[in-house]
């Protein structure tokens, strides 16, 4: 199953490298939203909860683009039928899609987080980097699991471009709460009380719940 997932993932990465459909669009979107926040809030630099909120809301909105394109090639070019006609476990498809989305998010963040630090963040990133990376990774994992499930769920609906974000964003609220709350002390001007453990714990719980849940229900999607 891992091998099949690897095959599907490699195919998806190859398609993305060739068509450049998702990652550039997501990256461009985050940069544009930073500019919008600069003018919308009329602030040159942000810190604390405002900074952490802007960063996370922007990243989650960008993930919507990735999720709504995630199954586009399968749906439009018969990939789902092809998978059903092959001796392949459906869970492999979920794993491949979640891993693909995770890599897309990492690629976006490699540009988007430094850009945020340069454009909007008041205090330097410097010492907080390891903590921030841990939060980003756990956050990405959650978005990837929920996104791979929601993308498949919305893929059959006629208004899928609308259904996918409307399903995804409320489901991401607990993830946003944990990520934003965990990041907030890292972005403060002066060091304050941190409560990283609690939020990382909640984030881990969220990731575990959604990965298990998705694996459990994914078999019922994309069938005849």
């Amino acid at each position: 199953m891992i091998r099949t997932a690897g095959t599907i993932l490699r195919k998806d990465l190859r398609l993305e490298l060739r068509t450049k459909e998702s990652v550039p669009a997501m990256t461009l979107f985050t940069l544009t939203v930073y500019v919008l926040f600069h003018f919308g809030l009329d602030r040159d630099s942000l810190d604390g909860d405002l900074a952490s909120g802007v960063l996370w809301v922007t990243l989650l909105l960008a993930s919507v683009i990735g999720v709504s394109r995630l199954y586009a090639a399968e749906r439009e070019q018969g990939g789902v039928d092809a998978l059903l006609l092959a001796p392949v476990d459906r869970t492999a498809l979920f794993l491949a899609k979640a891993a693909g989305l995770l890599l897309f998010l990492v690629a976006v963040e490699i540009v988007a987080v430094p850009a945020f630090a340069i454009l909007l963040l008041g205090p330097g990133l410097g010492g907080a980097l390891p903590e921030l990376l841990a939060i980003l990774m756990l956050g990405n994992l959650g978005v990837a699991a929920v996104g791979a499930l929601v993308g498949a769920l919305a893929a059959e609906s006629r208004a899928r471009e609308l259904t996918a974000p409307l399903l995804l964003l409320p489901l991401l609220v607990p993830l946003l709460i944990s990520c934003a709350q965990a990041t907030e002390p890292l972005f403060r001007q002066e060091q304050g009380p941190e409560d990283l453990g609690r939020w990382l714990g909640l984030l881990t719980l969220y990731d575990v719940v959604f990965v298990l849940l998705s694996v459990a229900v994914f078999d019922y999607l994309l069938e005849d």
């Binding site: 091998r3 099949t4 095959t7 599907i8 195919k11 190859r14 398609l15 060739r18 068509t19 090639a73 070019q77 018969g78 990939g79 039928d81 092809a82 998978l83 006609l85 092959a86 001796p87 392949v88």
Partner: peptide, 23 residues
């Protein structure tokens, strides 16, 4: 079927290799 079940942006060889691995 009607639908070739091949990805438009991949080459013939890449498509067939992908299906070969799945099988």
């Amino acid at each position: 079927g009607h639908d070739p079940l091949l990805y438009r942006d991949l080459t013939g060889r890449e498509n067939l290799r992908y299906h070969a691995r799945l099988h």
